[in-house]
Nucleic acid binder design. Structure first.
Length: 122
RNA sequence: GCAGAAGGCGAGGCAAUCGCUGGUUGGCGGUGGUGCUUUGGCAUCAGUUGUCGACUGGAGGAAAGUCCGGGCUCCGCAGGACAGGAUGGUCGAUAACGUCGACCGGCCGCGAGGUUAGGGAAAGUGCAGCAGAAAGCAAACCGCCGAACGAUUCACUUCGGUGGAUGCGUGGCAAGGGUGAAACGGUGUGGUAAGAGCACACCAGCGGCUAAGGUGACUUAGUCGGCUUGGUAAACCCCAUCCGGAGCUAGACCAAACAGGGUGCAGAAGUUGUCCGCUUCGCAAUGACACUCGGGUAGGUCGCGAUUGAGGCGACGAGCAAUCGUCGUGCACAGAUAAAUGGUUGCCAUCGAAGUGCUUGUCAUUUCGAGACAGAACCCGGCUUACAAGCCUUCUGCUGUU
RNA sequence: GCCCCCAUAGCUCAGAGGAUAGAGCGGUUGCUUCCUAAGCUGCGUCUGCGCAGGUUCGAAUCCUGCUGGGGGUG
């Protein structure tokens, strides 16, 4: 368990996206930018959900797909390391070049950092 | 062997494991309708949702750019014309095209071949800087000309003139020079004062006619004519042909919330207004609740994938070919929507580099490295552009050997 | 998804078939000043659709195809 990635673990509605990008806490390194917002407690209390945003300037469709897959894969394999109950919105850092290993390293670290900032801020 | 020309193939494979997603199917849970009911539930139906299994499918030759053409959908529409846009050798192919095939003409190349928006300039309008005399209709800068009329001058003279010379004027000419991208046919002979299609011969080119070949573009041959008519229409334009508009976020359906209309509750209570002020009553309005109506937002379902599509494959036939016809064939499930087709590992192929072995090879083996361009979004036919390693076919020129 | 526009000197723009490609700002040489600013004076850089091809005698300009950037709409 913890290795699957069904639809309930994804951020789907565009309202949640804008909410997270406007009001959420964020953390970034040279590779990823992570926005965090507390999850909708009524519907899904103890689930971490992931949403990915890739701007068109990142590259062509193949490169953007690759970023998505890498981010999704690293979330899928490591979401046990991330505290539950939050929505994450992940975006590649502007100008960063895709690289599977560094994404894998950076995602949980950035997520925890952003969650810490969120709880400190509130 | 070297140098080329044209075209094609190809888009690594097999496993293990962890995932994503569509379909079919089964179990379990939630939800809805119907029936029974002891109001606890039970049965059944189908839809939906979640989850756990099983089986099965899951990117391309360009999926890309969105440059053309269609299907499909909605809107508009009596017919025609104008405007606007597109196309432009001929014949054929096609649902259609600006696409494709074959052929014709022009240009480039020794050649295989390549390339070509290739109708009309004697309908009209416009444009051509600089240079040059002159840029479109003839004209004349340097120049040439003493045949004609003047002028000047010389000689002779029978004093009327005659014969020369001078390009100065009126004039004649366009051969030569030079400019330019382009200068009103070229060469030769005759001719002349000098010259000129002025005449003739040959050549180039234009137009008409005739004959032959071809469906045709056109080609070949003959003959006649004026002797020559410039370029540019991807300048306006003329001619011929084609085009109604918007697009799957098209469009159809369901439909929260807020606001609005109607009915009920019900004219009971509350609030506000009304009669000079207060109270009560009456009247009017309003709010709340329930039901309902239309439009329809958020959102959702369909459209949407073999259930009929200009489909694929195979055979036969027609055609030079593009392509078409007939027959056969369960050959055929990609359908996401914050958007699936992936990650990791192993093995085997391919290519390159370095090394090792001996059996020096079109060998074996070890290590390292490389594999592009690129991601369906309603669907087709084209075009254009991008594309690694590697491989194949046909043809041309030159050179060498036999 | 659909539609439209733009690309010229380091920057902002003009020029829209004729060859010298320009203007302003900027840079820079010199003059002026005790020095700077301002002013005057020259200068050059770089040059041209971003690229490729075509039409034309000639293309920054016309046509075609690509490349990059920006905007609108739903």
């Amino acid at each position: 368990m913890g290795q699957t990635f069904p639809k309930t673990r994804r951020v789907i509605s565009s309202q949640r996206f804008t909410l997270a990008l406007r009001t959420g806490a964020c953390a970034a390194d040279g590779c990823l930018v992570v926005f965090v917002v507390p999850a909708d407690s009524e519907r899904s209390p103890n689930v971490t959900r992931l949403g990915i945003t890739i701007p068109k300037k990142t590259g062509n469709a193949v490169i953007r797909n690759q970023w998505k897959r890498w981010i999704r894969e690293s979330f899928r394999t490591q979401c046990g390391n991330i505290p539950a109950g939050y929505d994450l919105i992940v975006r590649p850092k502007k100008g960063a070049r895709g690289d599977w290993k560094s994404i894998q390293k950076s995602l949980p670290v950035m997520a925890r950092k952003a969650i810490k900032r969120l709880s400190a801020g509130s």
